[in-house]
């Protein structure tokens, strides 16, 4: 267990605010991402907004809302409060993947080959690329899902730990145990570490091989946005008045080491996203600010500032080539930045 320390506040040394093109989202933004090269926003009113050259809106969840969204590259998969899991593809076509009638879709994850997993309450279902659906019942309501990088395996976060489940085997899921309510779950690219965000304003980690526990504490709020660096050596996290970045490079990960703190401001970080090819982090704050931070030299670039109190940034995301950044806020404010070449 180790405590965060606090750095002095830094001023951004560059600004790209005038290069941001606003997107009129029309409703609260739940998640942003890219489908191909097009910035796409999943909205609280059930719509998917393709914010390309010509704007296109698709209602993926008619009369309902998007609770959670995951981007596949070729489309976006959303889980709604109508109990439906829907994939919206680049051409605007909506395909219903599942309908858990009368329930909410609480957690969702996707992977490159087209596999999708979702949960409502304790029930978890996983659909592989061929369309075979398997299910398991977790010991308590599931809050987070994540596919393991290799093999068809799923990490399922719930009360008192994480279950590691092979959907295609009858074996009981392996358990990573730690008392308390686990929310989001993520695995390092080499699958050596599993990390969850917890109800008690902390992260919990396990070294998967020997199930050794690690606690990452010192957050003033829950840390609900977690993003790995492209090289898998760093984990950027939200929930503090700076982006907290934990080192996962050595064999012990962050055990016994402190985190980096990037872009400290008098507002809480609400969303983080590592650049797909460099050690640059896009950071959204709960007052509507967006900044970029470069890990190597702590350089900071301001992307969006708000006068007074803006609504929290709910999501930030990079395009696959790392040249564009999209962000969206709970109050329907959104924008796209084309980085200077």
């Amino acid at each position: 267990m180790f405590e965060r320390t606090c750095d002095a506040m830094a001023k951004p040394n560059q600004s790209l605010t005038d290069r941001v093109k606003p997107i009129a989202a029309g409703d609260g933004v739940v998640a942003v991402g890219f489908v191909g090269a097009t910035p796409v926003l999943a909205l609280a009113n059930g719509e998917i907004l393709f914010a390309g050259e010509t704007e296109k809106r698709v209602t993926a969840h008619p009369g309902a809302g998007v609770l959670i969204a995951r981007f596949t590259g070729g489309g976006v998969v959303t889980g709604g409060d109508d109990g439906r899991v829907v994939e919206t593809r680049a051409n605007g076509e909506c395909v219903e993947i599942a309908n858990e009638k009368g329930k909410w879709i609480d957690a969702l994850c996707v992977r490159g080959d087209g596999a999708v997993a979702w949960s409502s309450g304790k029930l978890v279902r996983a659909r592989d690329a061929k369309g075979d659906v398997k299910e398991m019942t977790a010991p308590s309501s599931v809050r987070g899902l994540c596919f393991t990088p290799k093999g068809y395996r799923l990490a399922v976060a719930h009360y008192n730990g994480v279950s590691l489940w092979f959907p295609n085997t009858a074996a009981e899921p392996d358990q990573l145990v730690w008392r308390g309510s686990h929310l989001d779950v993520t695995l390092s690219a080499d699958a050596r570490f599993a990390v969850t965000s917890m109800q008690e304003n902390s992260l919990h980690g396990w070294r998967v091989a020997d199930k050794k526990d690690m606690r990452m504490t010192g957050y003033p709020a829950k840390s609900r946005s977690l993003s790995w660096s492209h090289d898998g050596k760093w984990l950027a996290t939200s929930g503090a008045e700076a982006c907290i970045v934990w080192p996962f490079d050595g064999k012990d990960g962050p055990m016994g080491r402190g985190p980096r703190e990037c872009c400290a401001r008098p507002a809480r970080v609400s969303s983080v996203a590592f650049h797909p090819a460099s050690l640059v982090i896009a950071i959204g704050y709960d007052d509507g600010w967006v900044m970029l931070s470069r890990l190597s030299d702590a350089a900071e670039i301001l992307i969006r500032a708000t006068e007074g109190e803006g609504a929290p940034i709910s999501s930030v995301a990079w395009s696959g080539d790392g040249k564009r950044l999209v962000f969206g806020a709970e109050d329907a404010v959104a924008g796209i930045l084309d980085l200077p070449a």
Partner: peptide
């Protein structure tokens, strides 16, 4: 629908 899941805080 709710599940009435009561959790202890750590």
């Amino acid at each position: 629908g709710a599940d009435e899941e009561v959790f202890e805080m750590n």
